[in-house]
Simulated scan of single mutants.
Amino acid sequence: MDGYLYFLYTLIYIGILIFSIDRRNIISYSSRRSFIYLVIVGLIVDNAIVAIGRFIGEGSLLENLSYLRYWSHAFLTPTLVIYCIGILEKSKNINIRKTALYGATLITILLITVEIQSELLNLTLQPQWEFGVLRYIPTEISYGPPIMILIVTFILLLTGILLWIFEKWIWMFVGASLMTIGSIVSFPIESGAITNGFEVILIIFLVFTKRHVERDL
């Protein structure tokens, strides 16, 4: 069951990426908001590797692809901080100063560095079969989300709240809230792909938020 879900998530992300690219608005490609595209590409890679794991089988190929999953996650997920500042700088009612822009870049770099040092430098993987899915997971199990995820989630929620207050746009906050709930609530469902489903919902709301703030470009 989960294997099909990961295939489905991969196809949905590809569809989201195609939908989110506005060919009429080339300027938006170079904006800070366009970091969402990199995050989507990372999620396509992540879900595709998990989906095809059982077909590849245990071995060095799947293990190396799994390392790619973890490294891409470490480099791409923190860029959501830059995406958030790019969203806020388009608000007519929020004044974003250059120090905030520099701060967002610095936070992103720090989060990538922390993730690499705490999660990846000594990372070793082992195969695991779960709900019909073969993936490689860390041999040392960490309890609770990494600090990088916690900070990125907090910034997403804060950005969503600011947009709700100043722009009357609630949907980014809704998406971030659902993602948070999906990460901390244990659902009575035999599946390891539930959290990934909430990630899909979050990305959909982030893409719609990008299109919303760029509607006047």
Score class of each variant (00 low, 15 high):
Arg97Thr: 15
Lys98Asn: 12
Arg135Phe: 00
Phe131Trp: 14
Gly57Thr: 01
Tyr67Asp: 04
Ile94Gln: 06
Lys92Leu: 12
Tyr102Cys: 05
Gly86Ala: 08
Ile40Leu: 04
Pro138Thr: 06
Phe131Gln: 14
Val133Gly: 02
Leu125Val: 10
Ile52Asn: 04
Ser118His: 04
Leu43His: 04
Val114Trp: 14
Ile40Pro: 03
Leu123Asn: 09
Thr153Glu: 07
Tyr143Leu: 07
Ile44Cys: 02
Thr113Pro: 08
Leu101Pro: 03
Ile147Val: 12
Leu134Met: 01
Val133Arg: 11
Leu101Ser: 12
Asn47Ile: 01
Arg69Tyr: 00
Leu111Ile: 04
Leu62Glu: 00
Ile151Ser: 02
Ala104Asp: 06
Trp129Cys: 02
Phe75Leu: 15
Thr159Asn: 09
Leu125Asn: 08
Thr153Gly: 11
Leu111Pro: 07
Leu134Tyr: 00
Val41Pro: 13
Ile40Asp: 07
Ile112His: 02
Ile49Pro: 00
Ala48His: 01
Thr113Gly: 14
Pro138Ser: 07
Phe75Val: 13
Arg135Ile: 07
His73Arg: 13
Leu110Lys: 00
Glu119Gly: 02
Ile109Asn: 12
Pro127Arg: 01
Gln117Pro: 06
Leu111Gly: 07
Ile112Pro: 03
Ile149Ser: 12
Leu88Ala: 07
Glu140Asn: 14
Val81Asn: 01
Val45Asn: 04
Glu140Gln: 14
Cys84Pro: 15
Thr139Gln: 13
Lys98Ala: 04
Val45Pro: 00
Ile151Val: 11
Tyr83Arg: 01
Ser91Asp: 09
Ala74His: 08
Lys92Thr: 13
Pro78Gln: 11
Leu121Val: 13
Leu68Tyr: 04
Thr159Val: 10
Arg54Gln: 08
Ile109Gln: 08
Leu68Phe: 09
Gly160Pro: 07
Arg54Val: 05
Leu110Phe: 12
Thr108Pro: 09
Leu65Met: 10
Leu62Asp: 00
Glu140Met: 13
Lys98Trp: 06
Ile40Glu: 06
Ala51Tyr: 00
Ile147Asn: 09
Leu157Cys: 08
Phe55Gly: 03
Ser66Leu: 05
Gly42Ser: 10
Leu68Gln: 03
